[in-house]
């Protein structure tokens, strides 16, 4: 997990230190975010967690929509929630609301003007974004007549209208059908070539598709911040999972099942390979190839599988909630 060095917060798009949000007081007190420290550099950074993990509360603190109970947050060295910080961020809230009586063009032009873009180019920029999101034909229609997918595209365009350095997206694909969801992901990937994006989601596959780095949050605590690749590797290592394929898997499985170094072993019905969990990697790596040779079997493959982010996420959440023994953050 990343630490948040106090002396170089200017280098980060997002920098938080002990960021805490408590709603209510007394018996009604709910701690939504528990003193989180994390940083975001350039690129696309996923903010992953189940519903109620504290993602939206964190984002709302970053944009200044809700007060920070304790701790600090900076966006590119500007204190979160200040006018200065908001100048260079674009934001798409979860389930965004619009001035429904305005047309798509009017709405984007209005937001451009709010972002200090001169009138002479505000409309031009709005038209360009409408074109980018394939909404040119609907530019003069009132937003209230737009479909959910069109509204989400207008919301994304609204976040982009002033060319922000950092785009913050809170669950950009929630409540969308799979087709529109895919389109939005494609748009995010295209946009990410020009700016850094912080995107929250509880849909793991999407984060995997969109992001370079990921921060996993659960019950208001940061559990992991790392690159998506490292997160997957970390999972493989933490579970000590290996895949073995020989010319006689069923025979080999019966041979290794009783060994002390093996905690669990099974044949995957789909891949027809042996999956093994070990408690002692070093010994495992020595013993297994030796055993194969001794028994005259042919070793076809022997490797640590790459997990999907889904596996990482579920495993981490599972461990965090204490359902498995021996887990340490």
């Amino acid at each position: 997990m990343n630490s948040t060095p106090l002396d170089n917060r200017d280098d980060y798009y997002i920098w938080t230190n002990n960021l805490t949000k408590v709603y209510g007081t007394g018996e009604k007190k709910v701690v939504a975010v528990r003193g989180i420290d994390f940083t975001m550099e350039s690129g696309v950074h996923g903010f992953l967690g189940p519903n109620g993990a504290g993602k939206t509360s964190t984002i709302n603190m970053l944009i200044g929509a809700i007060s920070i109970t304790e701790g600090t947050a900076y966006l590119k060295s500007k204190k979160a929630g200040t006018k200065e910080a908001r100048k260079f961020i674009g934001f798409l809230p979860q389930d965004p609301a619009f001035y429904e009586k305005l047309s798509g063009l009017e709405y984007l032009t209005y937001l451009a003007r709010l972002n200090l873009i001169p009138k002479s180019i505000a409309e031009q920029k709005a038209l360009e974004l409408l074109k980018f999101f394939d909404l040119t034909e609907d530019k003069d229609r009132k937003i209230k007549t737009y479909s959910m997918g069109m509204k989400q595209k207008i919301g994304l365009a609204a976040g982009l209208i002033h060319d922000p350095q950092l785009l913050i997206l809170d669950e950009p694909t929630s409540n969308l059908d799979p087709l529109v969801r895919k389109k939005i992901i494609d748009y995010v990937r295209k946009i990410s070539k020009n700016m850094s994006i912080f995107v929250s989601s509880h849909v793991l596959s999407e984060v995997e598709q969109m992001c370079d780095k990921v921060t996993i949050i659960n019950k208001g605590r940061i559990i992991l911040t790392d690159s998506v690749q490292n997160a997957k590797k970390w999972f493989s290592k933490s579970t000590n999972l290996y895949v073995i394929d020989t010319n006689a898997n069923e025979v080999f499985l019966s041979l290794i099942k009783g060994l002390e170094i093996i905690t669990n072993a099974w044949i995957d019905e789909k891949e027809k390979s042996i999956y093994v969990n070990t408690g002692d990697i070093e010994q495992f790596q020595k013993e297994i190839p030796k055993l194969i040779v001794e028994k005259g079997l042919i070793l076809k493959s022997f490797y640590q599988p790459e997990s999907s982010l889904q596996d990482v996420f579920l495993d981490i959440i599972d461990k965090d909630e204490g359902k498995r023994n021996g887990f340490q953050k």
Binding site: I63, A65, K83, E84, P93, A97, L111, L114
Partner: peptide, 8 residues
Amino acid sequence: LTLISKPI
């Protein structure tokens, strides 16, 4: 929410 995310 959209309005307060702007520089105002």
